[in-house]
């Protein structure tokens, strides 16, 4: 009897049932620790560099929408103070100019947004302002595509997008920053 007992014990294998649990633990650990890095951001196309100073284009001032941000993160839009919250609507009004006012853009294709900041401006402010300006264009493009094709701009076909791009080109020019404020 005793002999058979030992043989039985030797036959016994290590219970592999818990292996799954261990593997699960590892799996969950990896699932939790790895953050699927979502890389999103504001896409911008920088102007090409040229050593020659830009030629002084005679631009009709009514077509230029100058936005200045100083080192204290304050906004000066066409010589007047403005809050960031109002920038989008004001920009849309300037580009569209629905009432054909003489101080706003003649036509959306001629409108130029000029953004200038200081070297002491906070990056966060700069990006917020840039975002608002871009949002103004996005809104206008959406309105236009809604009116023409009955859908949002991002759902339009390539040809339809090109058509809208032609009427509403995004022109946001960034000037060399001034250096009045403190950096750091």
């Amino acid at each position: 009897m005793g002999k058979t007992n030992t043989r039985d014990r030797m036959k016994n294998e290590v219970n592999a049932g818990s292996m799954a649990d261990i593997a699960f633990l590892l799996l969950i650990f990896f699932l939790v620790t790895t953050t699927i890095a979502e890389d999103k951001g504001v896409l911008v196309r920088l102007p090409p560099w040229s050593n020659e100073p830009p030629e002084n284009l005679k631009m009709n001032t009514r077509n230029v929408y100058s936005v200045l941000v100083n080192a204290d993160d304050q906004l000066l839009v066409r010589g007047e103070n403005m809050r960031v919250e109002n920038l989008k609507e004001a920009t849309k009004l300037f580009i569209r100019n629905p009432r054909k006012e003489s101080d706003k853009a003649e036509d959306p294709t001629k409108a130029i947004i000029s953004l200038k900041n200081d070297r002491g401006t906070k990056y966060k402010t700069f990006l917020t302002v840039y975002n608002e300006l871009k949002a103004a264009y996005t809104d206008l493009r959406n309105d236009e595509s809604e009116r023409r094709f009955g859908k949002l701009y991002e759902y339009c076909s390539r040809a339809q997008r090109d058509e809208i791009k032609k009427i509403l080109p995004v022109v946001i020019s960034e000037a060399e920053p001034t250096s009045f404020g403190d950096e750091g």
């Binding site: 890389d39 504001v42 896409l43 920088l46 966060k124």
Partner: peptide, 29 residues
């Protein structure tokens, strides 16, 4: 770029990118 950084260094980097003809830029946000 950290939100609290001032535009000075950012402008320098942008200029360097333009000089290197790397014009497609994405401000991560």
């Amino acid at each position: 770029i950290d939100g609290s950084v001032t535009m000075g260094i950012v402008a320098d980097v942008k200029t360097a990118l333009r000089k290197a003809n790397q014009l497609k830029v994405n401000y991560s946000a």
